[in-house]
Design a protein around this nucleic acid. Sequence first.
DNA 1: GTCTATACTGAGATAGAC
DNA 2: GTCTATCTCAGTATAGAC
Lengths: 204, 204
Amino acid sequence: MIETKDKILDAAERLFGERGYAETSLRHIIADAGVNLAAIHYHFGSKEDLLVQLVRRRAEPINAGRLAALDQAEAEAGPASVSVEKILEAFLLPAAEAAAKRPEMTRLMGRLHAEGCIPPGIKSYFTPMVERFIAAARRALPHLPEEELLWRLRASAGAMAFTMLEPHAPQGDYLARARQLVAFVSGGLRAPASVVEAKVEVTQ
Amino acid sequence: MIETKDKILDAAERLFGERGYAETSLRHIIADAGVNLAAIHYHFGSKEDLLVQLVRRRAEPINAGRLAALDQAEAEAGPASVSVEKILEAFLLPAAEAAAKRPEMTRLMGRLHAEGCIPPGIKSYFTPMVERFIAAARRALPHLPEEELLWRLRASAGAMAFTMLEPHAPQGDYLARARQLVAFVSGGLRAPASVVEAKVEVTQ
DNA sequence: GTCTATACTGAGATAGAC
DNA sequence: GTCTATCTCAGTATAGAC
């Protein structure tokens, strides 16, 4: 039956979102979906591949929306560089809209990002989109050395991931939270580069 | 033998730091330490309790240093509130000094923080120290609503955790990285609170 | 092509002999 | 204190029913 696959996807999406990936066993999923254990491996190959397909399905429209928003911002900016705030909005608002409909999925993706060890199948799916946003940030912050830029974006990702880990946004208003994130992260990205004086200070 | 316990601790600390907690099996640890499987449960009770004891041992001097630095900053500030930068330095510099000596441990703690699901034994150990820093931040940023303050501190923790996840600081200079973090996070914490206009914008 | 029953390997945990 | 044997449960693999 074709509905077996959907029943697995639905149950897995809910349980992964509620309990996390590692804490949800395949036997828990099949009990919830009312299917046989081997059906998962028949349809998805492995637990990890089940996760990858799940995330891709939900991330696809979000990432498409992100790239479209960045395209539009760049078109509006013309030859000038897009502002940090516009870049962050292009990245965050499509995700916030999706989060309003499906908070569990957002929470799971935040947790996956946070765990650091994202399955290759997910990472490779996000990479092209992320690369475009890194390039936009590089143009918006030309004074930052490359290493510092990449680190600051990584720190920004941490702020976003921890925000996504929260069970729910205040009053369920994910767009408000996204705008708060834009303010916080742009404040961090715009901070003056710290003077390299650490070693001097320490020996005092 | 008393050295059995130490052999387990040493092997576990190294392997957890290199491979992560979940990816390191007890059988891997005993092979490395040259002890019996049941010895771990005799000395520590469970894999999780082994982790808790490990982290506590390394975190104790760091947290003591953090509180001492905050005490000193508050003494110097007198009746005035301590600046955000001073608070962040008190929190980050003791950890950076420890990270210079033991990068793997720092990485493991970053990963544990990031995973969101910190064992209760670790969380309860950090809570009193964290509460003091939250109180200091509340005084330093009195204009922020409480909910917004807590969320911004959470986002700050995300930036720190992702920074700690990096295999190594640039040129192994953890103090320089800590100062960059102070600049980034204080920029985020100091950002003007976003106007609640999200709902208006969306309907456009 | 789909799905079920069953078995395999390795994980953490435990009881009891020494 | 230490070790052997064993238990339960995880993800995985496969043979075969329909």
